[in-house]
Design a protein around this nucleic acid. Structure first.
Lengths: 148, 148
DNA sequence: AGAGTCAGTTGCAAAAGTAAACTGACTCCC
DNA sequence: GGGAGTCAGTTTACTTTTGCAACTGACTCT
């Protein structure tokens, strides 16, 4: 019913498995090579292979050779991948608050000034940040086009 | 290595499977009953049972009787569950942009004024919104306490 | 030549997911 | 009061996906 109306479904089809976001998190932190990811995550090699192929196929990461003979690649986030940053930040914040008593094991800071960051849902009209009760969903432009 | 330092891992342990976030999304949208979730999502009944138990066990949803004879429950998000809103919003935005050409099938609006919302990562010191390149991670208060 | 590294592939057992049938406690209607 | 229907599951049989370990291939280093 509400499935195809919603981007959450489509997003989760791509990155909604147990490993994807963890791999992406490590790519954000600077991991690039197969072995590096494998060791950090403790993921089985075949799964890592499959996941990296999926990431590359989805355009979230790209495979770039860093040496010939033997040919070796590294995996870099594309813009599409880097754009997952807010999602990771949001999930991390939730974990900080609800799985770690509000004390963050890792904290995100502004690279310029070192201030810990906030993530907010913002209404441009009211110029205010909102909580969940003030958010409604409604069909957007994509849905309207399908009806015409 | 970096596993336990990070709340993303812990968050995904709780809600990082294919169904959890979709169930939570539907709870956000007002679904409350077993059959409602089952039909909307197309999830197998046994999985829905297992997932709802996990959500209740994790304190993300609570099971509240809405009738006796026969006893029937509905599932409501707790504060912990409602607090996943920013994560869902972020994932949805990503899907809008990257899976739907930027046109949102469903759009989130401010209930007061109807304006479509933005989600931003914000530096309270600089009073500015940031992009991923300006974000660094470092050990937080949880980790620091362990060092003192 | 032998040992080591890196990035995978292959094979198999275990776990998780799916679909469909079944259960139990009721209500509704003739 | 008997039959049909609803709702929220449970059970069962089957398929798919994981996870682990061992193996491969192309090299380098000593």
């Amino acid at each position: 019913m509400s499935n195809n109306e919603c981007s959450i479904q489509q997003t989760l089809d791509v990155i909604g498995d147990r490993w994807m976001l963890l791999i992406i998190r490590n790519l954000f932190r600077g991991a690039r090579r197969f072995g590096e990811l494998e060791e950090d995550l403790g993921i089985a090699k075949n799964l890592l292979t499959a996941r990296l192929n999926k990431l590359v196929g989805a355009g979230i990461a790209e495979r770039v050779p860093y040496q010939e003979r033997p040919l070796r690649h590294e995996y870099l986030l594309t813009q599409k991948g880097r754009d997952l940053s807010p999602s990771l930040v949001a999930l991390m914040k939730w974990g900080d608050r609800w799985c770690n008593d509000g004390s963050a094991p890792t904290v995100l800071v502004h690279s310029d000034c070192g201030t810990p960051l906030m993530q907010v849902t913002h209404c441009p009209t009211c110029d205010d940040s909102l909580d969940p009760g003030q958010i409604r969903s409604r069909p957007g432009p994509g849905a309207q086009e399908a009806l015409r």
